[in-house]
Amino acid sequence: MPEQTESAPLLELSKCEQIFRTKRGDVRAVAGVDLEVRPGKVLCLVGESGCGKTTTARAAAGLTRPTAGWVRYKGEDVNTMDSASRQAFREAVQYIHQDPYASLNPVRTVYSTVTAGLRRHKLVKTRTEARAKAAELLELVDLTPAESYLDKYPHQLSGGQRQRVAIARALAMGPQVLIADESTSMLDVSIRVSLLNTLGRLRDDLDVGFLFITHDLAVAKYFAWDGEIAVMYLGEIVEQGPTPQIINDPQHPYTKALISAVCEPDPRLAREKKTVRLRSSEIPSLTALPSGCTFHPRCPLFEPGLCDASAPPLSLINGDARRLACHVVARDHGPARAGAN
């Protein structure tokens, strides 16, 4: 049988960096991040609040311009696109915001919200055609019967229904990439699972690539089991690889700490679960980052003269499909290829 080749990435971030100038000093929100989103695949970006996930997502969507590095869509640099290519990019890469209460205009009906882009770009010719398309999109996100939602306002909907409307709006332009920024974090658990199932079906049926932002590794495990997880700490990717490897056999101390913090519903397994104790619970200031590995003040594997001397490169672990940025773990696994994808 011929060897299967991996599809080319739709969206790439290469050495992407974002620095904000403040009165207290420069804030390095994103530090040289490399990420790829492929058709029909999920890349989960995971980390604590304030680690740079949303800043990375906004750069990927073209909402902000990186201080350094590149964002490429189908191999073309977003910042050097002509107007036609830029328009195609803006239609193909859609953003789903975290807050379903703030992301919808309160004075617009569901019909007006979902069809705004279609009417703006003259993709529908009549109101009848627009309503039919809106109903089709609502059916796609499991808001049925669609006719009962079209003329409602956001305040007449539940949180889960509002987020489904936001997803329908994102799907209206026929996107190839969806960037979901904590899009389920403000919903109840039962609604969250239902929405994740809807997103999973859309991924499979429409072959849409996902950049899925979350602080919850349980959500990442559920939604991206067949995809990848990239773990971010203070603007840097510290571990990245296939989801089963990251969840079942984490290698970076920070990843282990995140996984140990996930609640275990089974009391027996909860008693057996190992808790990772960090050296400190304090997150360093972004205006005064530690030398060397930025995680070393909190890391249980810290070795003086090594971890605080130089920043570890993101390198492939021998015999593994993951990349890791840790001097101690990389040394224990033997030499690896630095900077490989």
Rank of each mutant, 00 (worst) to 15 (best):
L157D: 09
R164E: 00
V93K: 04
G40Q: 11
Y73F: 15
R90A: 04
P313S: 08
L301F: 13
V110D: 01
S190N: 10
A288P: 01
V165H: 06
L234H: 08
D205S: 14
L137Q: 02
L324P: 05
E17Y: 02
D266N: 15
M173L: 15
T144A: 12
K41N: 06
R201I: 03
R337I: 10
L301Y: 14
T144Q: 13
M81I: 04
N318F: 01
G160P: 06
F302H: 14
P290Q: 07
V46I: 11
Q176C: 01
G159L: 06
P284R: 07
E6L: 14
L202G: 05
E303R: 15
M1T: 06
D207T: 13
R28G: 00
E272G: 06
V189M: 13
T275K: 14
T184Y: 04
H155P: 00
H97E: 05
E236N: 12
A130K: 11
S310I: 01
P145L: 07
R337S: 09
L140R: 14
T128F: 02
A130T: 10
K152E: 00
S112A: 15
L202A: 08
T255F: 09
S185F: 09
V219P: 02
S190G: 08
G319P: 03
V30W: 12
V262G: 08
T198L: 09
T184D: 04
L301R: 13
R120H: 12
I237S: 06
R108Q: 14
E239V: 00
A338N: 10
N318C: 03
A146P: 09
Q94P: 02
Q245D: 15
D142N: 13
Q163L: 01
G227E: 05
V107S: 12
C16P: 00
R162H: 03
